[in-house]
Design a protein around this nucleic acid. Structure first.
Lengths: 251, 251
DNA sequence: CGTACGTTTGATCTTTCTCAATAATGGTGG
DNA sequence: CCACCATTATTGAGAAAGATCAAACGTACG
């Protein structure tokens, strides 16, 4: 998908989205030691309770953060898209507080924890970029708390669809006014705090009302404006560099 | 409450909870320019959509992060306790994605954004401490997503009570096996994604079952172990330095 | 071509919300 | 100190969103 070949170029691109880095900083990032791995759906990148010795960057495919409750239900906490550093939190915290698993087949680059830690501490602008990236992740988490805490089922799902589309678009990963949802309805239920059955009915409803068209897992935005309204969606919380609230997925 | 007099000592204490700082770093923090203000309940520290020019540190009293949905309901995203830097995110991000308001009467110290930014960039160990603090906040947000997404009303409220008690205890702010809940049942509803009416019934239930005793807003832990079980609570996600799962509020 | 997984649909049940009214409580001015 | 007012807490009854249970239908893949 990316024209540039370096495995860490997506990661670099993500970090430089908000912060302009010097050539030396850029070279230092691309020069990080790393090992590339291919993974199957369901493979663990991080396991809750473990002490990871490396940080994985997603090169292609999707992954998700996840946590289980005591009575066995699952809550999905984030969907990682190509370019995302999958466990920045584990650079500086010891015990992982959640798990990360592959959603689809994909490729990751593992970077030794020490090397990344050193890089962040020794190069202030990179440190700053990492802080910003972490802060944006926190902002998205706040929006997710709002989503599951104060929106009804239809709003939640519409919101998740909008967020996903805008994030993909910001990385140039979205196709013509629609995208391939990389998850089952059960996983969508686990991200919205609903049941798979109810997710199904809501999706059907969104389609019946002409907001989206589904063909298998492909979501086509038939009425992007209405979908945003239905999901109470405003992209401000994503802190995307482009600013404004204007841009929809490619029209 | 704190024996040391410097307004920023609570903030320093918070930052050094995980990271040992050099004397020079400590002096740099205490030497930050700041202005102390007293505030009434409801006063805004940060307004969603604004571009703050300073970062407030809570000296005493409580505050809460909050976001409104399009149809007017409120979701509380965090409760800030004395020592918390109230808007670290606004050091590096421009437009605030949520509001922060005082929960009680209290005191804050405002630090100019530029000074704090400079400090973080020029002193790697302080940068590291700020990253860790941010990461822990994100971890707590993840747990909140789980809480509102996958737990029922009783679990949610028990969980919030446990979290609050443990956080207070970690700062030495908790009194003998109980604490003063600094919020109304309506605000508790807004933190758990419930209604005030239902919160009332659940609290009554927790009391009827002998897990807590209420006297006005004071919560006494009659059966701390059972309350943790009822809330599916485990303190790991708070990443407290003490580690382990052992410590309960002072027994 | 059959098995496993995901989706769709229907019927019923629960939790939680909504609406409404009443009782405490704390703060305020006289 | 007391009467009054505005919040906040409590309680009840009915409504609704979403969960649960169960079954049938598709589709991909070995």
């Amino acid at each position: 998908m990316t024209s540039d070949k370096h495995p860490l170029s997506g990661f670099l691109h993500d970090l430089t989205a908000h912060e302009r880095l010097s050539d030396a900083d850029r070279d230092a990032i691309l020069g990080l030691p790393h090992r590339v791995r291919k993974l199957d759906p369901g493979a663990y990148l991080v396991r809750e309770g473990s002490l990871p010795s490396q940080c994985s960057v997603l090169i292609d495919g999707y992954a998700y953060r996840q946590k289980m409750t005591g009575n066995g239900s699952r809550q999905i906490l984030a969907v990682c898209i190509p370019g995302d550093a999958v466990d920045l939190q584990n650079i500086f915290l010891d015990i992982s507080d959640h798990s990360v698993q592959m959603l689809t087949r994909g490729t990751v680059a593992d970077i030794p924890r020490d090397a990344l830690q050193q890089l962040v501490l020794s190069r202030p602008q990179i440190g700053r970029a990492v802080i910003e990236s972490t802060l944006i992740e926190a902002s998205i988490l706040r929006e997710w708390v709002v989503n599951v805490g104060r929106r009804d089922a239809r709003e939640r799902i519409a919101h998740v669809l909008c967020e996903f589309a805008v994030r993909l678009e910001s990385r140039g990963l979205i196709s013509y006014n629609g995208f391939e949802l990389p998850m089952t309805q059960e996983q969508l239920a686990d991200t919205t705090g609903l049941t798979a059955v109810h997710v199904n009915r809501v999706l059907k409803g969104l389609e019946a009302d002409g907001l989206i068209i589904r063909r298998r897992r492909h979501i086509h935005f038939q009425d992007w404006r209405a979908l945003q309204d239905a999901g109470d969606f405003s992209r401000a919380y994503l802190h995307l560099p482009g600013g404004g609230d204007a841009a929809a997925p490619a029209h």
